[in-house]
């Protein structure tokens, strides 16, 4: 059947033209979809890009501070330990993390992403559980006592000037500002009670000394 040259040619032509028709259909279909739904496609791709976070591209850089602008040049990744917090009057030295996730708070003291970093000259919001070995004894701290943040770019010493018992929704009592470097450290209160605590014991301290590491 395919022996004659004309038959072979016709056969090949028919096959190729049908394959080309299929590709034409693909092009027409894609053009139609793009023309009619382009805004919806862009929105969908935008949403997909928004929810896709390639954490492998995030580099854990060395955290350093620019002494002129008082801004950090690179920030620690959320959930990473980047120093220690010491309360010498209570005999406590705890791991200090950037982040306030449940995992962080199980292991030490966390720093809220809503405030500033040590050395940046603003409010630093930190917290820890009232569990034994973490901040159970925080209410024993007094005005004049020191809190030391030893992070990977410097050591910052704060002096306690006030303590307050604050209802957990009264967040305005932990104000975010950049006029003065204030460290606020809080835990659930009462620390020796039982059950679900709705109050927070907040310790306010201001920066009195800093040492920036080379």
């Amino acid at each position: 059947m395919l022996k004659s040259k004309k038959n072979k040619t016709d056969f090949v032509k028919a096959t190729i033209s049908n394959i080309i028709v299929a590709f034409i259909y693909v092009a027409v279909f894609c053009f139609f979809i793009y023309y009619v739904f382009s805004s919806k496609i862009s929105m969908a791709m935008g949403i997909l890009d928004t929810i896709s976070i390639d954490t492998s591209k995030k580099i854990l850089k060395d955290v350093t501070i620019d002494l002129e602008t008082r801004n950090l040049k690179a920030y620690p990744e959320f959930g990473t330990r980047y120093g220690t917090i010491s309360l010498p009057s209570l005999g406590l030295t705890l791991d200090f993390y950037f982040g306030d996730s449940l995992e962080v708070l199980r292991n030490g003291v966390g720093q809220s992403g809503g405030g500033y970093f040590p050395g940046e000259g603003g409010s630093i919001i930190t917290m820890g559980h009232n569990y034994s070995g973490i901040l159970k004894t925080l209410p024993e701290i007094k005005s004049g006592d020191t809190i030391i943040l030893d992070v990977n770019y410097g050591k910052f010493t704060y002096e306690v000037y006030d303590t307050k018992i604050v209802y957990y929704t009264e967040t305005y009592k932990l104000p975010i500002q950049r006029d003065e470097e204030i460290l606020m450290l809080y835990t659930c209160y009462p620390t020796d009670g039982f059950g679900h605590a709705v109050d927070r014991y907040v310790v306010y301290s201001r920066l009195v000394e800093e040492e920036i590491y080379d």
């Binding site: 590709f23 259909y25 693909v26 279909f29 929810i51 896709s52 976070i53």
Partner: peptide, 28 residues
């Protein structure tokens, strides 16, 4: 029918190239 299947096959196979890299790092 062959054209239909080839059309569908091309589009189904190309989904991999369009979406595979985009969906690897979804965080919800």
């Amino acid at each position: 029918i062959g054209i239909n299947l080839l059309f569908s096959g091309i589009l189904c196979a190309s989904i991999k190239f369009l979406l595979e890299k985009r969906v690897q790092h979804i965080l919800i």
